[in-house]
Amino acid sequence: MLSKAAIKELNEIRQKYPDASAALLPALYIAQREFGYLGADAYEAVSDALGVPRAIARGVGTFYAMYKHKPMGRHIVQLCTNVSCMILGAEKLSDFLKNKYGLETGGTTPDKRFSLVIMECIGACGTAPAMLVDDDFYENLTEKYIEEILEKYK
């Protein structure tokens, strides 16, 4: 079930679009926030709130890799391992995440604090290696810097 506040938010978003299916993407973000990821419950909630058939909501949601499609940690670490980042040691950083935090690619820490997603170039090649934690952007990463950064996310 969506919270009252989320339903209100959804209704406001709905008003900005000409029809219900156009409001699907932002609505799915809200549902993802509420449910933690997009699963059957989230799609059904969005479907009920917008009046869009649930199979269609799921079809749209699963098209986008940037939604969470399975339960994930509270914070998402998105580490780039594409060419520039790789040359400047991103793979070592990924080993570091694994050894220090138990974070495997695509995995979640046992305390559900972090999940790790490996990215293909986040446009920071000049200041590589780089990563995103949730919506925050970090560059020129080192192991020590990563430790400092992750301390901020509980």
Partner: peptide
């Protein structure tokens, strides 16, 4: 979707992984 109006199935995922599924 367009004729029966049931909208019970859709393309799930994308690219080479696309497939048709009911909800």
């Amino acid at each position: 979707e367009g004729v029966q109006g049931a909208s019970a199935i859709d393309v799930i995922s994308r690219g080479g992984h696309s497939h048709i599924e009911p909800f």
